[in-house]
Computed example of a mutant assay.
Amino acid sequence: MGSRAGSERIVPAPAGGPQHDNAWRAARRAVHALRAAAVLLAAEGLLLVCLGVFLVVRGFGADTDDRGRAELGGLFAVVAGVVLWLLTWALLARRQWARSPLVVVQILCIPVAVGLLQAHRYGEGIPLVAVPVGVLVLIGVSGAYRPHQPTGPGDSSG
């Protein structure tokens, strides 16, 4: 019947100490930001596809002045939504080729939003400013735009 001092479980400190903990928290925050940006992009794509289908269907209505323009606009919106879904997948997979198109698409939304806000169409303009700015901030926080740093010989990621 001896002492219990030897039977206590000792939990080792994580390797690297506080610096390791800070790096782990930053990496976790980056993953959450990347996922949030992906959710916003996917929602943006879904909205564009739905709007495109709506425009195509509405283009067949009797009150449509220019059917070709309505149909082409709807088709363009559907294609743009599918492209946003592709960019969402590429962002989650951290593909380098998606960086420029993603930024360009988000920046192109801002002048359109400003025009809507100037026309006092706040219901469309405010989300069209908030979502692209949110996506750009989130992908910046996630580090998706850091320069690619290969991990070693034969690194094929990107």
Rank of each mutant, 00 (worst) to 15 (best):
G134S: 07
F54N: 02
L92F: 02
F76L: 12
G143F: 10
P147G: 01
V31G: 12
P14F: 13
A43E: 06
Q19C: 00
G143Y: 07
L108T: 04
V78G: 09
L136Q: 05
W89C: 11
R25D: 04
V105Q: 10
L48N: 07
N22K: 14
R28Y: 02
A36S: 15
V112M: 09
L84G: 04
V133H: 05
A30C: 06
G143S: 01
H148S: 08
G81C: 08
V39M: 12
V105K: 06
L51W: 15
G45K: 04
W97R: 10
A113G: 04
P18L: 15
W24S: 09
P147H: 03
R94D: 05
L41S: 11
V57C: 02
V135N: 02
G73C: 01
G74I: 00
P127A: 01
G73F: 08
G68D: 09
S100G: 13
L46T: 07
I110T: 07
R67K: 12
R28E: 07
D21E: 05
Q19G: 02
V133I: 15
V82M: 14
G59F: 12
L136F: 12
A130P: 01
L128P: 11
A27N: 09
V114M: 15
S100M: 15
P14T: 02
L116C: 08
A119R: 11
D63C: 01
W85L: 09
A23T: 01
V39F: 13
C50Y: 06
L91W: 12
A93D: 11
G140R: 05
I107W: 14
P147C: 01
L128A: 14
L86N: 12
R67S: 11
Q106G: 00
V104L: 15
G17E: 03
R69S: 13
L136I: 05
G123S: 03
L91G: 10
W89T: 10
A43S: 14
V56Q: 08
I139R: 06
L48V: 00
H32N: 11
A62W: 09
R58H: 11
A144L: 15
S142D: 07
I107A: 07
L46I: 03
R67L: 04
R69W: 02
D66A: 07
A33G: 13
D63M: 02
A130I: 14
I139K: 04
I126N: 00
W85M: 08
A27W: 04
P12Y: 01
A70N: 06
A77L: 08
L116P: 07
L41Y: 06
F60D: 00
R35M: 08
F54H: 06
A23N: 10
A23W: 09
A13G: 05
Q118R: 13
V131K: 00
P147E: 00
A15L: 12
I139L: 14
F76S: 04
Q96Y: 12
E124H: 11
W89Q: 11
L55T: 00
R28L: 04
H20P: 01
A113R: 09
P14Q: 11
L41V: 15
D65A: 13
V56I: 08
G59K: 06
Y145V: 01
V103K: 13
A113I: 13
A93L: 02
L51P: 10
V49L: 13
L34F: 01
A33V: 03
A62R: 11
I110E: 08
A90V: 05
G73R: 08
V39A: 15
A43R: 03
T88A: 08
L86E: 12
L116T: 06
